[in-house]
Design a protein around this nucleic acid. Structure first.
Lengths: 200, 200
DNA sequence: CCAGAATTGTAGTGTTCACTACAGATGTGG
DNA sequence: CCACATCTGTAGTGAACACTACAATTCTGG
């Protein structure tokens, strides 16, 4: 028995294009017509490969978070909690204003509020953001154990905080803030982590 | 010449209902059918009164920002920059998890990314958020002049920072974070403003 | 070379969307 | 009471949406 006609497009390349459309227009704002045009394929190919629009989003998110996870590994490798926060927020200021991508962060731009039938999309994105927060929290737990953070500090709260600032910066970037404005925010934000660090 | 049949509904009451729908579903996710049902009117009444869907959004935003402006006046009336930040962020933790409203903030939930034909909605929301930031910046400029903030501090950066944290908290609230989680974020965030305060 | 399996492009499907034509209703000014 | 202006409900409008039926195409296994 034959294995059928082989796919003529590269799924990962197509996902990169779809990612950009979701990033720029959000899940609901992105149309199948825009997606297929950007991906260079026709609707039947899209549905055969990804199931439906939401399946395509999840596949794009998988690809996005995989790349992001690698970057986060480098972030949490910083020697101190303060430097972790700085590397993270300054890096985000760069990435979210990188002209190679739409401004902001796909995990925010993808959809914060959705209409009937897409209610779970915002939660799907939130779950991906939570993964980053988990990585941060574990790193801050270690920092506290190492005496890098004060004994009175709350690693979970710090991780939530850094995550919240990241999201806020993403929204700013998508509505026109430039790189310098984001760097200023990051610079101020780091001082709260500094305040929780054991000095010396 | 007669003045025509009088309107049978209260525009402000109707706007409150519309606000809630935009808040929960976003601009694109909210349908005219949902809006008219919540407002208790029929489509022709909506279009006669507000022009179109975007006109309705702007009218709802006007009402939202008017109420919010009153609240902000109380926030910036706090005696120090640190207390301004604390009152603002702690108040936002309360408001964004108030069960009387949808979670989060209308100026964020309304729409961060939109499809073709609604590209200016995110910018409209950003402009409203910028008004809040302006109020904060002016207050921090005064705090610096009064010696409440360090001479080396950057009032504009601090205002941007507090605004960014607010937005991040709104996204968290809309994706399920509870009041205590937001309070933790606010508590950490205030420490960055504290770090820019002249101690004594 | 042939049978079966999977992909492809064309050309739609029904549904839902924002928005409106129209006729009847309800007010004001003369 | 009448002319006029505006609102209201019913019932749609064309356009855009996510998604798919179908036949032609291109591969593998025997």
């Amino acid at each position: 028995m034959g294995m059928g006609r082989p796919r003529e497009f590269d799924a990962d390349v197509a996902l990169d294009q779809a990612m950009e459309v979701f990033w720029r227009h959000g899940y609901e704002g992105a149309t199948i017509a825009q997606l297929t045009e950007a991906m260079g394929i026709n609707p039947p190919s899209l549905y055969a490969c990804f199931g439906n629009k939401e399946g395509l989003l999840k596949a794009a998110l998988n690809r996005y978070t995989k790349l992001r996870g690698v970057w986060m590994d480098g972030v949490v490798a910083a020697p101190t909690a303060r430097e972790v926060a700085e590397r993270m927020l300054m890096g985000i200021a760069e990435k979210q204003t990188d002209p190679a991508n739409p401004p902001g962060c796909l995990l925010v731009q993808g959809g914060i509020a959705c209409g009937t039938g897409s209610e779970n999309v915002p939660f799907e994105l939130a779950a991906r953001r939570a993964e980053n927060e988990d990585q941060l929290r574990e790193r801050f737990v270690r920092a506290k154990a190492e005496g890098d953070l004060k004994p009175t500090s709350d690693p979970a709260a710090l991780a939530r905080y850094v995550s919240a600032v990241s999201v806020g910066m993403g929204v700013m970037a998508s509505s026109g803030s430039d790189r310098e404005a984001l760097r200023q925010v990051a610079s101020v934000a780091v001082q709260a982590v500094e305040a929780q660090s054991a000095h010396g």
